[in-house]
């Protein structure tokens, strides 16, 4: 399972970087979304994958029974998803306003600050 996941994650990183290298700002945003999802998936995979072993402690016990999935990695991924959601919402607003000001979906039109 981990091997399959590593190929999927690698493919997602490659696709994300490819999208970010395009001139269109919309594709840039899609690239950023893909990249953050790839990173989340990487953390998820890194914690090890155990099918059918939720990290739940039965009533009365203090430890989960047998092997269980790592809850910390899931908490971390959840936090990262929420943060990614917030930052992405902001990026969409920013790009909407930038589009109104620059009137083009083209990075090459945005060279004024580099001169």
């Amino acid at each position: 399972m981990e091997v399959v996941m590593s190929f999927v994650i690698g493919g997602m990183y490659a696709a994300a970087i490819y999208m970010m290298l395009r001139r269109s700002i919309v594709k840039l945003v899609i690239g950023l979304v893909l990249l953050s999802n790839a990173a989340n998936l990487l953390i998820f995979t890194m914690a090890g994958m155990l099918p059918g072993a939720p990290p739940l402690i039965p009533p009365g016990a203090t430890m989960p029974e047998g092997l269980s999935a790592d809850p910390l990695a899931q908490a971390v991924v959840l936090t990262a998803i929420v943060i990614g959601f917030g930052v992405l919402a902001f990026a969409v607003v920013l790009i909407h306003r930038a589009y109104e000001v620059v009137k083009a979906d083209d990075m090459d039109q945005m060279k004024d600050t580099d001169r």
């Binding site: 970010m20 700002i25 953050s36 930038a98 990075m107 945005m110 060279k111 004024d112």
Partner: peptide
């Protein structure tokens, strides 16, 4: 206009670095 253009570069590169940071955290945790 200049602020928008500057902000797009700032946002993109900083988000990219955040994602690299997150990747590094994932590997460290592993």
């Amino acid at each position: 206009r200049a602020q928008m253009e500057g902000a797009i570069k700032y946002v993109t590169l900083n988000l990219l670095s955040s994602m690299i940071f997150l990747t590094a955290i994932g590997l460290t945790y592993g």
